[in-house]
Design a protein around this nucleic acid. Structure first.
Lengths: 326, 326
DNA sequence: CAATCTTATGAATACGTAGTCACGATTTCC
DNA sequence: GGAAATCGTGACTACGTATTCATAAGATTG
């Protein structure tokens, strides 16, 4: 089913059929209707493959994201929504291991993407530079380490963590610990730095505890461990909501009350954090806005562009009430 | 950057370059290495666009999914993972309104998909038949109404709901209600039917309450309403986990204990249902297995194929303990 | 050593589109 | 009323690949 078939049925040339779909204003109304009807009857839709070939633009935006995690699923959804609103389509590639990223990007690059979005702070920076070649534009998403190599859109990790820390300090917290996901992740580092600076200014030390991954289970183990050991600080600053849910459940399972015995904060603002079952105080990332920025940046091509977007502190149950000190 | 550029650099013809990537065994090892190196140096990757044109197959699998909901996000992830394992790529399109589906499918069909997966029980059946044309294969996912029109992979909704109902009956439940999402959804209907048959056999009526959407908020309102009105049955069979989380929180907010005052079951088995904060008894859909089935079915082309996959009853906190009657 | 088979490569081609150019038919304008 | 501008359409082409066919060189066989 090609434009030639439609042309034959409508009694026009292929050129005219193509025009009807690409620049309808150039075709006389009568002809246009005739062609449209023929196309409808035959179930014809122009091939984006052939069109992409002709125009040197695929109409595809690719996004490379970690395979797991609430947060990333929200990000995928946001991209799907916003990309779909334009006339473009979204190609989604997920990866489990960082080693798999390279291959994933190669495969996806074959589609000569109009834009490629690299998400996840664990993608190696070295890999990025090689990819700008086959694709039209590359933008890094929440990957601070990519600054300078590719245009970057990121939430203000450090500022957000600082806001959370200040909130805890105002509550009268006298001791705290930071629960990170993976210490090599640049987001993890920035969030820790943001928190540690605030606590440090009040001469409160902030030990770093590494969960090992950004998952509920990893958090659960940390929570359970802390509860068993028994030396629980006034507050836990957790690097991500999903870890925080696990930490909270791990603590509660062992009889530690949140926020009674220990306040907990998250980061990301995934939907579940607003559910009353957890009511997690967190820093909400304005994902829709960040995604919109990414799509804008894809149109430009300033490699050194950095868009930092402020998150919003959302206070909920897990930091309600006074500390035992206050 | 085309195969001609690589050919020139390697001192061979374009044909040879193409062969190195498509059928390497046909090229002498020395030549192959020379070409590979040239390609690497130039950052060349064959264009899937041109290749798709030549081969009449895009290498793309499309999936059309509702824009919101934990469950659908998991489904997208599963598709991304499994499609990526092959040499194909995943095109994701989401929609908010059922009306938008038609347009979404049109746009996506332009890519001459090797396979198109239609997910969501709210996609109109009439729309399906029109789409088999431009795309190579169409499979419906969890959309029982599509049976006979397109190959279908679905969880056993009715059987799963029956299993949940029997579990509740064994606990000694004497009264119950069903909380549905959208009554016109075929999954909703089948789940209700599965539950109502079991309760009916014990002469327990099962009123249907419609939440209006498959969301936490819709569930929350139902839970809060029930608590305020005060006539709470022994058990609530909820059509989806996400609604159930809302129902539970809505009930608890108003002092109703789950599972103390009322047992609650969900459906889907989203990750959060296993988190201890809720510990929701639910019917776990083996999403990975279902997705694998879909990808298999895409290769065949038997329109009347129906694959029904059994879910797994997972019992957790929300149905623990005895009823006040038992 | 001649005849045949195998291996390695190159030339040519089709895939479906959207644009450029060319051309005839109107319409506009002085 | 004739020149010029406008409008509508068709013929032709390039986009980059993977394959088929042809061919040349090398290996194998009796």
């Amino acid at each position: 089913m090609t434009s030639f078939d439609v042309a034959k049925r409508a009694g026009v040339s292929q050129s005219t059929v193509a025009r009807v779909f690409a620049r309808p204003a150039l075709v006389a109304e009568a002809t246009r209707n005739r062609v449209s009807r023929a196309a409808r009857e035959l179930g014809y839709v122009p091939s984006a493959i052939a069109g992409g070939m002709r125009n040197q633009r695929s109409g595809l935006v690719g996004v490379v994201v970690p395979a797991q995690g609430e947060y990333w699923q929200s990000v995928i959804s946001a991209f799907a929504r916003q990309v779909g609103e334009g006339s473009r389509q979204l190609l989604v590639t997920t990866f489990r291991d960082v080693q798999a990223v390279e291959g994933a990007i190669q495969s996806i690059s074959r589609y000569r993407l109009d834009g490629l979005v690299l998400a996840s702070s664990t993608i190696g920076v070295g890999q990025i530079s090689r990819l700008t070649q086959p694709n039209h534009a590359v933008v890094a998403f929440n990957q601070p380490a990519a600054a300078g190599i590719a245009p970057l859109v990121t939430v203000d990790n450090q500022g957000g963590a600082a806001a959370l820390a200040r909130h805890l300090i105002e509550l009268g917290v006298k001791s705290a610990a930071f629960v990170g996901g993976v210490s090599s992740a640049s987001t993890d580092q920035l969030r820790y730095r943001g928190a540690v600076e605030q606590f440090g200014a009040r001469e409160i030390s902030l030990p770093y505890i590494e969960a090992g991954s950004f998952t509920y289970d990893a958090g659960y183990k940390i929570g359970a461990n802390l509860a068993e050991v028994g030396r629980i600080p006034d507050a836990l600053v957790v690097a991500a909501d999903e870890i925080a849910f696990g930490v909270i459940d791990g603590l509660r399972r062992h009889g530690v009350s949140v926020p009674g015995d220990v306040r907990v904060t998250g980061f990301d603002g995934v939907p579940q954090s607003a559910w009353e079952g957890y009511g997690l105080t967190t820093l909400v990332q304005p994902i829709e806005q960040m995604v919109a920025s990414v799509l804008q940046l894809l149109s430009l091509s300033a490699v050194d562009q950095i868009v930092t977007i402020e998150g919003e502190l959302r206070i909920a149950n897990t930091t309600r009430g006074e500390t035992s000190h206050g």
